[in-house]
Design a protein around this nucleic acid. Structure first.
Length: 874
RNA sequence: GGAAGUUUAGCUCAGUUGGGAGAGCGUCUGCCUUACAAGCAGAGGGUCAUAGGUUCGAGUCCUAUAACUUCCACCA
């Protein structure tokens, strides 16, 4: 045996992973003799490195995959990474900035070269991090959203949708990020509260006789105003409807229109209408046929329509100057402090500008309907269920999806414009000839697609779509998707409608939603707070298994968890416990010829641990099936530490340290058997250490990864089980006396038992566990020693006090016990005297209470007798 | 404005169909007992947010309230 005295993960984790990988253990095959199980890894962005959220996500997936693999499924876990169009481009641009470069300076081709270099670097890094974690994914199918065949899937899908009329190009109000200089989808905008003002500005009527005061948060967009709207029922302004106003700071005239959209109570009750720069105003503009004046450039500066004084000013600067000018010219009536939400870019956090722009859109309504139905019908199941509400809420109110991005890194839109007549042709490849003018050269659309357009296809593009592959046939729909709740809209929802639309089938049956990993104080981990914890550093210090176990335990589906270092440490301690228990077992197997389990009679404690093991297997298995991973982890932890280490190993020592060689061999063999089962149960959670130990066990030369998951072997061990439970009660009670009476563990006891239980088979163990000189079953009347007494279910334990204990202390102890018993008796009596409890509660529950009461009364009388006895002596 | 979640030991959290409140960490006591001091044996600590209700019985189910968190919407 060559196991170190303490668990040292660094000495084997990397080595084992390389071996697993080299031997192809992670590779799953299309195998119709096995049941398929398939998980698609949510592809990490190639923007940087993995964080705790990834560690959690991948740990959970790996647990499920390893569990299913051991259950005999052909378990395929497809890994991959996401090109993360905008996020990556932002990073690359930042990096270029440090070198004094801009996108324009190096051009599209030059930029793409850089971007692919970036991809190579970070992709490799991420893959290595996943390996460090122990992820057993099938690297032979590693995918990247911009791989050739995944890109082919994107083009195919785009063309299909276009031909069905579900993709269109048009001028709409979209969210524009002036920093990233691209359009964003609604989902990519986050609303953040900002302190601002409501500026009240007077717009005079053309005749100069009246004025209308408007309230706005965006004075600088005044140049794009094409009307002022009031509520048709607002009597204050009804005489003005239809009149013309002079737009301050300009020489333009704009009409006053009436529209229900305006709320009389808010602000002044009059709204300036800027159709090109506000989604609501855009709608009002359509209703009233107003011109759309775009007064802002793509970089957030005002354009020439604003006049020489304001042209090229940044929107923030322009706001100040406009306000100053309005004030100076007497138009500014009031400044009212006002807090409101402003949309910000989810990548660079600059304020998003609603702008009218020509973009590509996906028509969502027809796609959403079947996607809603799939969840309503239960075909797709969210775990926990409540997230389906989140899903419905979004899907049922969905708007068309803006999918074009003015970026370079991504899938270029497969749309071509005839160089001669400008005719649009949507096609997977460059068209040969213009259908309109027969010209033969085309220019491809400059834009790329929203990054989520390609990840929406992930469950089938990674399995070979658009080709009809055996993999798709076998593994699609996939079994379960494991992801955090923050990308339900971005990703989960879009995979669902994409799968249904393009494959004709849902992409996965179950969606396991987990929370996000927060810091010790419950804050979100973020760059700006600098509170992120690097999983690799944790692995370096505690080992991957410790990190995995700490992430997997104490969690409930859908709820957030905190990363707490002391928790990792306690998991490391647990693994060390497993390590040392294994060392103990191995030590005792050494040099012995172990008889095969099944060929010898089991001792009472063997039968007992077998019962406990069976319970544990049943619970762990069913919890894993239900995705209750935290509960499964807690159960195995408890079984290993409490039942196996604290009790079974301790009980086994009397046999192991006896002189009976056969007995010793049998015990070693059974210990080894139980340990093996334990290692299998632990393996999905802590794969490295279980493998390392497993390979050290006698007769195990092959990986534990592909061993069969333990199953429940029902045994009829009732009587032996009870006997061991009795033993435990005696031991506990005796230890209690020692602790309370301050009797050193090294001091041997003599113990008398008054009981009907046959203790012959458990007596040697009992002696060992309570460190007793003798344990005798006696007739109470024959004892002449002055004893301290403990009453447990089924026995009185009497320990001669001699000079071990002091009488006054013993009296206090006994009185304390009596008080407890009295309390219990009261509780029982209360219940049993309640006639409705007796008549309505299940019989078993009532009987149990009756039995307890009888025992407590017995205990009570023993204690009273004892107390009197001691009082008499004192 | 709409929705969801949380509220259990000093801290972080479990508690799956309603039947005597749990774990880890921390605290206190005693132990280097030949697998493990990353350990062993114990102890202490909770009107399960509040108020009602259903029930023989509620941390668990229902209603209301409060505090906190998150998501969605975005009235300028």
């Amino acid at each position: 045996m060559d196991m170190a005295k303490t668990y040292e993960p660094k000495s084997f984790e990397d080595r084992l992973y390389s071996e697993w990988e080299a031997r192809g253990y992670f590779r799953a095959e299309v195998d119709t003799t096995k049941r398929p199980f398939c998980v698609m890894m949510p592809p990490p962005n190639i923007t940087g490195q993995l964080h705790m959220g990834h560690a959690l996500n991948n740990t959970l997936q790996d647990i499920l995959v390893r569990f299913k693999r051991m259950q005999g499924y052909s378990a395929e876990w497809v890994p991959g990474t996401d090109h993360a169009s905008i996020a990556t481009e932002v990073k690359i641009v930042e990096q270029m900035k440090e070198e004094g470069l801009t996108k324009d300076m190096i051009g599209r081709d030059g930029f793409m070269v850089r971007a692919w270099e970036w991809k190579e670097k970070y992709n490799t890094r991420i893959v290595n991090q996943l390996k460090k974690l122990g992820s057993s994914c099938d690297w032979s199918r590693l995918a990247f959203t911009m791989d050739n065949h995944l890109s082919a899937a994107v083009s195919k899908v785009f063309v299909n949708l276009y031909n069905k009329g579900l993709i269109y190009r048009g001028s709409r109000i979209i969210n524009w990020c002036p920093t990233c200089k691209t359009a964003l989808s609604d989902a990519e905008v986050e609303y953040i509260e900002h302190d601002s003002n409501l500026w009240h500005i007077a717009y005079p009527t053309v005749d100069g006789e009246d004025r209308l005061i408007v309230a706005t948060t965006r004075p600088e967009t005044l140049f794009g105003d094409t009307a002022v709207a009031v509520n048709p029922n607002d009597e204050r302004y009804s005489h003005l409807i239809g009149k013309m106003l002079k737009l301050p700071l300009t020489d333009r005239e704009i009409p006053i229109v009436a529209d229900d959209y305006v709320e009389c109570e808010f602000g002044s009750g009059a709204v300036k209408i800027t159709p090109a720069h506000d989604p609501n105003d855009f709608e009002v503009g359509l209703r009233h046929n107003l011109p759309i004046l775009r007064v802002m450039n793509d970089d957030g500066t005002l354009n020439e329509l604003c006049g020489e004084r304001y042209n090229t000013l940044d929107r923030d600067v322009a706001r100040k100057i406009v306000v100053d000018d309005l004030k100076e010219q007497g138009y500014l009536v009031k400044i009212e402090p006002y807090t409101h939400n402003t949309g910000c870019c989810y990548r660079c956090h600059s304020i998003v500008e609603p702008i009218v722009s020509k973009q590509w859109f996906v028509s969502m309504k027809p796609l959403a309907e079947p996607a809603i139905e799939a969840v309503k019908s239960g075909e797709i199941r969210f775990v926990p269920e409540r997230f389906s509400k989140t899903y419905f809420n979004w899907m049922e109110n969905i708007k068309d999806w803006c999918i074009s991005r003015q970026l370079w890194w991504g899938h270029r839109i497969p749309a071509y414009y005839c160089d001669k007549c400008g005719e649009l042709v949507v096609s997977e490849t460059t068209p040969d000839i213009c259908p309109k003018c027969a010209h033969t050269t085309f220019s491809q659309d400059e834009d790329v697609l929203d990054t989520w357009f390609s990840s929406a296809l992930w469950p089938f593009s990674t399995l070979g779509y658009p080709d009809k592959t055996a993999e798709l046939d076998y593994w699609y729909p996939t079994t379960v998707l494991v992801t955090a709740y923050d990308i339900i809209f971005f990703w989960v929802a879009r995979m669902i409608f994409s799968g249904i639309e393009h494959m004709g089938q849902i992409p996965f049956g179950d969606v396991l939603i987990h929370g996000i990993v927060r810091d010790e104080q419950g804050r979100k981990m973020s760059k700006s707070l600098g509170n992120g914890v690097d999983p690799l550093k944790v692995i370096e210090e505690y080992g991957a298994d410790s990190l995995r176990f700490s992430l997997a335990s104490g969690i409930a589906p859908g709820s957030d968890t905190r990363y707490i270092e002391s928790r990792v440490e306690s998991c490391r301690n647990f693994i060390n416990k497993v390590w040392n228990a294994s060392r103990f077992v191995l030590m005792n197997c050494e040099g012995k010829t172990l008889p095969k389990v099944g060929t010898f009679e089991l001792a009472p404690e063997d039968k007992w641990i077998t019962c406990r093991l069976n319970d544990a297997i049943a619970e762990i298995t069913s919890n894993l099936e239900k995705y209750e991973i935290g509960m499964a982890a807690g159960r195995i932890y408890d079984f290993v530490w409490t039942e196996f280490c604290d009790w079974y190993i301790e009980m086994s020592k009397s046999a192991l340290y006896s002189d009976d060689e056969d007995l010793k061999c049998r015990k070693a063999s059974y210990l080894e058997y139980i340990l093996t089962q334990i290692l299998k149960l632990l393996h999905p959670f802590i794969p490295f250490v279980t493998e390392e130990i497993y390979l050290n066990l006698p007769n195990h030369t092959d990986t534990i990864m592909n061993e069969e998951w333990p199953s429940v072997n029902a045994g009829e061990f009732g009587a032996e089980h009870d006997r061991v439970e009795f033993l435990r009660d005696v031991v506990r009670a005796t230890r209690n006396v020692r602790a309370e009476m301050n009797v050193a563990p090294s001091k041997k006891l003599r113990v008398y038992l008054v009981t009907d239980v046959d203790i012959s088979t458990i007596k040697p163990i009992m002696l060992k566990l309570i460190n007793a000189e003798t344990v005798e079953v006696v007739d109470k009347a024959t004892i002449s020693d002055k004893c301290t007494t403990v009453v447990i279910l089924g026995a009185e334990i009497m320990i001669p006090m001699g000079d071990l204990v002091e009488f006054d202390k013993e009296l206090i102890r006994l009185e304390g016990e009596l008080a407890n018993v009295d309390k219990e008796i009261k509780r029982c009596e209360g219940m049993l005297q309640n006639e409705r409890f007796v008549s309505k509660a299940p019989e078993a529950v009532v009987n149990a209470e009756r039995e307890k009461l009888a025992k407590y009364r017995e205990t009570q009388s023993v204690l009273i007798g004892k107390i009197n006895e001691i009082k008499a002596i004192m």
